[in-house]
Design a protein around this nucleic acid. Structure first.
Lengths: 249, 249
DNA sequence: CGTGCTGTTGAGGACGATCAATGACGGTGG
DNA sequence: CCACCGTCATTGATCGTCCTCAACAGCACG
């Protein structure tokens, strides 16, 4: 169950088994709800960090007008509420909701604090994890801000497909509803539905309306004008590693 | 010149003079360009971190279609390229441009790395700084994604006013052009101009078309439906501090 | 005294929102 | 086994926000 987490941290540069083990040891596995339930409430920040181990969740905020803004989708290995670890006051009314059945792990601050102190590389890895989130967030901002609906939805799907692959999920079926996508894209559900019909006509999505199934990944990438990844850690670390090795204390 | 920086880091929880001094000592002051020039290029990541000491800059990306997406405005004390410190590969084609005359400081990685190792609190403060950026970015996403143009522009102005005050700038004149605002808001320049005329009729902005001058802050806040701040660090740290004090190694 | 950047104005059109129903499916309880 | 209900998908019609194009005006600069 902790595999995804271990893999992610290795790709974040936490390569010494000693550091990794120390971290994994303080994670307590736990089962959490299904679609509709909140994994992390919007209320006061708890005494622990939550990390997703299996399933799909989203970081969202409920709007005054009854709407919902989805800021990010979270996959196994991602932290649900890293933001509240360093910035105690809940950012706004942020919450994390489950989109599928899912499992999480929790890490008490009181365990994490000293572990980071003893394993500085762990702190760095966490910092990187949050920078990676920020990077994805910027991409999302660009997406929402500039691209027309068709491209926007396609791009969102590309992102999810890519991130899923990064954690070893290769199914062509994306476990989201049109509603989720609309909330993330900042479009009305009705319009998303029309976009879906276009994508089907283009042979990108399957005709089965019940699930979102990507039939042609090539086509999707084309429609989305989707380039490279701000998503894959591994490659991005080479340079860093060099710097660290060379920097004696 | 380093005042803004020192103040910011104190508010980020770097309260021990020893840590703060160690940090300030490795900052090298430097004068940088005026409007139109890039403070940090979009090319390869350099060997140092850049921090803004005076003036106003923006983190942006040039789009294929000739447009420009502004992700964030940066004020004295803010880092220009913190993202490339932990994530070597340039995120995308990110660059930092000067919007006014400005001064920056640079901090060589080779100086920063060991300093962080010796002063863990500094690493934490930097982490917090990047989380704060992320927090502002989320707010921006919400703004761009959901609010209609009038509210959106007003909200953007409110944010800038608030952030300026946080670093001791109380002038009612915001040194941005309508173009900058359009690029940040994801609106066309023409439309922003029309919104400006509305804001003037509402008595929020001055009639002087050459500069952006907020005449009625109350009015602006009202139009924007602008609530509280994900911006002010000080208050947010109380809780954290308690946790740290209590956690013996 | 041009040249460039920024701001302003008008007209027309496209994209996406909203409102209002209806359909399709799965699960629940009688 | 069937009736009921809730969630999600689909469709049509209408409307409004915001974009594009195109031109011009004002100011600052060299």
């Amino acid at each position: 169950m902790l595999d995804a987490l271990a893999q992610k941290f290795r790709s974040l540069g936490l390569d010494r088994d000693e550091d990794l083990d120390a971290f994994l040891r303080i994670v307590k596995v736990r089962r959490d709800g299904t679609r509709g339930e909140d994994v992390v409430g919007s209320g006061s920040s708890p005494k622990y960090l939550t990390v997703l181990l299996a399933g799909l969740t989203c970081l969202y905020e409920s709007l005054e007008d009854g709407g919902r803004q989805i800021y990010a989708f979270q996959y196994p290995g991602d932290f649900c509420d890293l933001h509240s670890y360093v910035l105690p006051e809940p950012d706004m009314a942020l919450a994390v909701g489950a989109l599928t059945e899912c499992f999480t792990g929790i890490i008490y601050y009181k365990d994490l604090d000293p572990t980071i102190r003893r394993h500085p590389q762990l702190g760095l890895a966490l910092w990187r994890a949050s920078m990676l989130e920020a990077s994805i967030l910027r991409e999302r901002l660009l997406n929402v801000s500039r691209r027309p609906a068709l491209e926007r939805v396609a791009h969102l799907l590309c992102q999810e497909l890519t991130r899923r692959e990064a954690v070893g999920i290769y199914s062509a079926i994306v476990p989201l509803t049109q509603i989720d996508l609309a909330d993330a894209a900042g479009l009305s559900v009705v319009h998303v539905n029309r976009i879906f019909q276009d994508l089907r006509k283009l042979g990108v999505l399957s005709e089965n309306g019940r699930v979102i199934e990507v039939v042609s990944k090539k086509g999707l990438v084309g429609v989305a004008k989707f380039y490279r990844g701000y998503l894959d850690m591994p490659k991005r670390l080479s340079q860093w590693q060099v710097r660290i090795e060379g920097a004696a204390d």
